[in-house]
Design a protein around this nucleic acid. Structure first.
Ligand code: MN
Ligand code: MN
Ligand code: ZN
Ligand code: ZN
Lengths: 129, 129
DNA sequence: GTATTGATTTGGACTTTGTCTAATGTCTGG
DNA sequence: CCAGACATTAGACAAAGTCCAAATCAATAC
């Protein structure tokens, strides 16, 4: 974990190690709140401010990917390889779609002076009624 | 406007007509807050609760499309034809990408008992530094 | 008209997610 | 040990959205 943080130019503090561990030891998409809860399961030791600060830092440094998929909360994805997402509207469950299952082709003319930050492809499904 | 609402099985009340008018008379992507402001520019007559209720109703009835693209607010799109979106991270500006510019191919195996609600493709761009 | 009644709207309290700030704590090189 | 930079923290704050009980409205029935 320490090496992973260092390799992304992140000073590995105790809190950052704990948060990284929570994210990388499972391969789930977690919200800030979930990270907060998991990191403080045993004994409370990381504040809300630090969780938010740290997640933002991780995103900036490219260690995790931010997913905007649910109208009420951001998810953090420890998998930064290209892949897509499937979101179950009813349950809020978010899962990966391997890049091999779906491809995106073409690119629109970008506004002058802008560069692509990322392309998000989200399949929204609903439990059949 | 009344006909449009009726054709989507929506009882055309004064407030709903005003809100639909705000959305359809311009072809922009508006947030609930913006709809609220626009509908009440002249004289205040529609409450926050009604704006939220009505937008939700419009989405349910398929009159407008909900766009989850910005971590802090939902946008509503009067264009329900298939198309994609380009989001400028810095400015928060959201614009359309015609379906002819980008194609999505393939479909993942869906979880049993679910059906596709929609596929969202978002190109995120950042002003080049 | 007037009454009835279901649908709609409303103010305002409330919740949730996230941000901000000023104070405090930690670490390191000299 | 000390200075300074960096990191963490509690808690106040803000913004988006939800909820609810009360009021209003609109349509039909007499
Ligand atoms: Mn610990
Ligand atoms: Mn008016
Ligand atoms: Zn993922
Ligand atoms: Zn659009």
């Amino acid at each position: 974990m320490v090496g992973l943080l260092r390799s992304h130019d992140i000073n590995p503090t105790h809190q950052r190690i704990e948060i990284a561990y929570v994210l990388f030891s499972r391969q789930e998409h977690l919200s800030a709140d979930q990270v907060m809860a998991l990191v403080n399961t045993h004994h409370s030791e990381t504040s809300k401010a630090t969780v938010y600060n740290t997640l933002k830092l991780f995103v900036e440094k490219g260690l995790v990917r931010e997913l905007i998929v649910d109208p009420s909360k951001v998810f953090y994805d420890p998998n930064t390889h290209p892949h897509h997402h499937l979101y179950e509207i009813n349950t809020g469950k978010l899962s990966d779609i391997g890049a091999e299952y779906m491809q995106v082709s073409g690119l629109p003319p970008l506004p002058a002076g802008t560069v692509i930050e990322g392309i998000d492809l989200i399949v929204r499904v609903r439990r059949a009624s």
